[in-house]
């Protein structure tokens, strides 16, 4: 008798196989992305507003919209990965939990 059989129901395994592990990490990335975006968009709070050293509006536009483009690209990338994983048969139910790593 070996213990190599499928894990018993009701007791999820502690470690996931590689594919599920990747899926979890993509979801983690999707969770983190808005906080990165918020952080980047809060950076203008630190900019100097007075005198010669003040940040010029053209730089501000380039920065803010640059962040925007990066965020959209990041979200698009993650969305595509999630979609690909969903097609590969990874169920949403499997992806929702956070109990195994």
């Amino acid at each position: 008798m070996t213990e190599a059989g499928p894990p018993r129901r009701g007791k999820p395994p502690v470690f996931l196989e590689r594919q599920s592990y990747r899926r979890r990490r993509v979801i983690d990335a999707a969770r983190v992305l808005p906080f990165i975006g918020m952080l980047l968009w809060l950076i203008p709070l630190l900019w100097r507003e007075d005198g010669e050293v003040a940040v010029r509006s053209s730089s501000a536009i380039l920065y803010l919209f640059g962040v925007w483009i990066l965020l959209v690209a990041g979200a698009g990338l993650l969305s595509a990965k999630l979609a690909a994983q969903a097609r590969d048969g990874g169920s949403d139910a499997e992806a929702r939990g956070g109990e195994a790593f």
Binding site: A30, L33, P34, G37
Partner: peptide
């Protein structure tokens, strides 16, 4: 709203 959408998983 952009942040809300980007953080849709939450």
């Amino acid at each position: 709203p952009s942040l809300v959408l980007i953080g849709w998983w939450w």
